[in-house]
Design a protein around this nucleic acid. Sequence first.
DNA 1: AGAAGTTTAGCATTCGAATGCAACAAATGA
DNA 2: TCATTTGTTGCATTCGAATGCTAAACTTCT
Lengths: 346, 346
Amino acid sequence: MARRSTQAASDGADKAKPVTSYDVAREAGVSQSAVSRYFTPGASVSARTRAKILKAVNKLGYQPNAIARSLITRRSSLVAVVVANLGFNPEFTSVLGQALSARGLNTLLFTLDHESDADHVIDQLWQYRVAGVVAAVTLPPRHVDMLSQREIPLVFVNRAYEDVPVNSVSCDQSEGERWLVDGLCAAGHRRIAIVSGPEDSPVSRQRVSSAADRLANIGVKPVEIVVADFTYQGGREAMRKLAAGSAQPDAIICANDMLAIGCIDEARHALGLRIPEDISIVGFDGSAPGQWASYDLVTIRQPTNLMVDAAIDMLMARIDDPQLITEKRVFSGELVRGASARLADT
Amino acid sequence: MARRSTQAASDGADKAKPVTSYDVAREAGVSQSAVSRYFTPGASVSARTRAKILKAVNKLGYQPNAIARSLITRRSSLVAVVVANLGFNPEFTSVLGQALSARGLNTLLFTLDHESDADHVIDQLWQYRVAGVVAAVTLPPRHVDMLSQREIPLVFVNRAYEDVPVNSVSCDQSEGERWLVDGLCAAGHRRIAIVSGPEDSPVSRQRVSSAADRLANIGVKPVEIVVADFTYQGGREAMRKLAAGSAQPDAIICANDMLAIGCIDEARHALGLRIPEDISIVGFDGSAPGQWASYDLVTIRQPTNLMVDAAIDMLMARIDDPQLITEKRVFSGELVRGASARLADT
DNA sequence: AGAAGTTTAGCATTCGAATGCAACAAATGA
DNA sequence: TCATTTGTTGCATTCGAATGCTAAACTTCT
């Protein structure tokens, strides 16, 4: 038998049972409908009734029950935010959460280990009748269809689908890679290697192929392409492989900042290379650690705030009108000229 | 007038109206109660009925409406996770989210800019009748009281309250700081400075006072205490101040890893100091970047996984029995012997 | 077979707020 | 002043699943 808190048991506050709109109505001498309207923006309530209700609300400490409201309106104020554990950009999630909150929406967070856990997530968010979904992971087309059939607005971040019409905001990966490639080549680099992220990551694939394409245009062939996961350790291992191979690159294009940081640390601390004198290393994302003095990465900064705002605007527009046609918004990144690579103006 | 998706408008899937338990009941030729019981673990349903319902569920693609369920049971499966924007430890949130998910709970994430935004958050989570709260921020006592009156289980992470009985899991900050201080002093350091976090952060205060106390015990007085916020820039500025002052420390104890990283970068890249030859720098947390080769911090690693598991265990025990007495669980940290400081065995 | 005990099924009610509708009051216009 | 418009209010119903209670079906035992 469980011990119980003597405090809770003795102070008589045992059944602090929730205050409902009926309690408020009785206290204020009005109907429950009036109380409901009081909390409905734009509903017509006279000043006199307003005052009475306000008083009762304060006296009783009433807070509307969002659950009951969602049941009748058939929609909650929850927005599902789906991110992958590894590609997890904390700043993005944080900014997104605050922006949602500022608009009166709450964040239902789903952190996936593997993108295959999506099944479970879709069930959950549907059970909660979320008002919308922001996904920074890839969802299988059947889930996208399901959401669109249920008229749940969905916005992807940095994912584009070829055939399915979906909403998305993204940073122009191709353009960013072109800038990096051009800068490196103009500075005289010719032995360029690429460190790719996981092969099932569309973000990685797009960045890598954009870089490779641009190189091809210029008439340069990557000396090697190494696949790693999007982690610091992945970057270190990739650098180790490159150093051990015969390619001997003089520049490395990494699929994100984390990989670039790993490469730099391995190059400096394990291989004794100087950066950028011996080797240039560039990343992608514009993450905070990449800008630390120890790394000072050349990278492409994604405009996080703009992207978050755009995502939420799209989401809210579709919450108001679920039939709005799909739209893709692509933002340019910003070339950050750090000291991790020799880069020429182009 | 808004344009509409020709696709959605033409494929006839316009009103995919939600499947309810009544629909399933009709399809399966049973009562709605039976369907409900089918989804209630431990409820008595015969094998035959089970089969009929399962079939109907699959055919119609039914998912119980969590909103309706919460309304009647008066409790949702949502757990509010409240973190501060700045002290935000992404790994912690991520691990916590997954652990909750594994137990069938969903994460309602609140990211606070300033701990004073707590008012708003408390309203929100009460509106959603969350099953519990995990707070990595300080909540004013009136909120703690309110939650306890409403019988909403609350577990703090790395916060202890003096007077109010609350549940908490934490890492033993004092012990950790003692280890650091002892190690530094045993290595001969005497001119020790402290870089504190924001003054309204209990975590910072506790770490700083523990370190100062231990120093006092040994008979050493900190040469200077600088206040900074828990950021990289804060660390850099703190280091700059220390270097500009007359104290000239030979070791710096930082209230967290982020500050230590900032100090190191400033010392190396702006002041031209060698670490740890010219100055020892230690942190606290055991964050991932602190372990990167460029920093290789001496720090105290918090046992994130243990703490998360403990937090969830406590939470779930109190969801089952809200009257359980409060409990505080304190875990030892782990001294990480990096290369950012000269440290002696003690 | 019949009595007693155990499952299982269904009915009816409940949770708390939103809303269409009708009744009514206040404000405007003729 | 009366008719019309506009603004408020309350009643009754609705959302979808959970559950106490009773009745029916099935077991088990004598």
